[in-house]
Design a protein around this nucleic acid. Sequence first.
DNA 1: TGACAATGACTGACTAGTCAGTCATAATTT
DNA 2: AAATTATGACTGACTAGTCAGTCATTGTCA
Lengths: 233, 233
Amino acid sequence: MSKTPAKPAARPRRDPPQGRPQDRKPLGAASPVSNRAARAAERRTAIVAAALDEFIARGFAAARLDDVARRAGVAKGTIYLHFKDKEALFEELVRTAIVPLIARLAPPEQPVGSVRAALERFAFTFIQEVATTRRGDLVRLIVAEGPRFPAIADFYYREVVSRGLAVMRGLIETGIARGEIRLPALKDYPQIVVAPAMIAVIWKSLFERHAPLDAMAMLRVHLDLIFGERSAS
Amino acid sequence: MSKTPAKPAARPRRDPPQGRPQDRKPLGAASPVSNRAARAAERRTAIVAAALDEFIARGFAAARLDDVARRAGVAKGTIYLHFKDKEALFEELVRTAIVPLIARLAPPEQPVGSVRAALERFAFTFIQEVATTRRGDLVRLIVAEGPRFPAIADFYYREVVSRGLAVMRGLIETGIARGEIRLPALKDYPQIVVAPAMIAVIWKSLFERHAPLDAMAMLRVHLDLIFGERSAS
DNA sequence: TGACAATGACTGACTAGTCAGTCATAATTT
DNA sequence: AAATTATGACTGACTAGTCAGTCATTGTCA
């Protein structure tokens, strides 16, 4: 429709000419990386990163694999060397992106200082690493597409939600045992402790424009609610 | 692929034969309704209802207008007599579906009994009318598609979020003035009061299968948190 | 070490299918 | 009969997924 008839003739190779990845360089653009497997892994990573952006921006159905490929500086066919189909890419993507989230979400079960301090630290980390970043959009993406991808909802529940809530419940129990937390019933609904943090994530991506939200301040007030009036700054 | 070659020949008309609207009857299937405008309005309503189901089930991009038409017991062209395009249908749909939500969300600013009782009633209504119903899925749909449809996010913020939060803030202030609520800072973040209810909505549609949630019990514990230990049953 | 062969990662034009939106035709109402 | 409203076959734009072909890299042998 535009280029050569059907014969690729002399197709230029490697980075320099090529399709120019104007959107995102294929990661180790500078590193030489002679090893083949390493290059392949690099491309895979680039594809996943590009797909994350596209899926977040457009949602699963509307995301175009052509765009993912362009963004990753890769031909469309390459995507299919690494992933069975669009759906597999999506699921893998969520898995990949969530792993680092898990690490963040698992603070020491037995806090060093007060439980309140531990939760405050947790809240701070959460705001910094999730609510403010693209990871937050990922959470929204899961909420959005979850019902259509049970596998993803399952995975997310198993790996993030149930674990996170278990840790939270542990912290609450410690808080109750130490007399920091008044309401024993709270341990039955750790969701209550996490709820405002989730709201912050959603708020950021939907309403920040209309009414900016000081998430950390909100979470502090919420902690005041749980632990009683102010304690540390 | 199944019917007549390409010539409509003798195309049967009206309800009886037709595509049989097995999914959803066009509303007043029995009522005579001679008036034309009324019939049109009825169809419009049927289209909106069908579209709500489809958009909730598949999301905006993946929803097919053919399916919407079939579900509404209407030909595809008819949709275009009422809506400019798919997007207009979607936006109108959200508007239409949200109006009744607003009514629900506006309890008396000055509660008759205690503020706690008012909030408990509110929570109960919310669980009954939103978290448990398709309206809850609508909320999820808005969260999902909001970023791609600023007009919808705007509308939702204006009509539901800001109003709802204003009412909530009013209640909180009353609670503070009456000494029911200890923490004055709570009035700055009415989101905190609503957060668990939102979580309940999301939980229901994502994780109910894995771990059923007694939303009302959770909201009661949350109220205990706000008002201090138990008060009324 | 240098030449040559084998490999398989990568490419992108192409196919097959989908679906939003159109419009000539038909039904219904006035 | 004219005007209005509804229909659904059709079109054209678009995209997931394929595959024959290319060539940088790796392995092998003299």
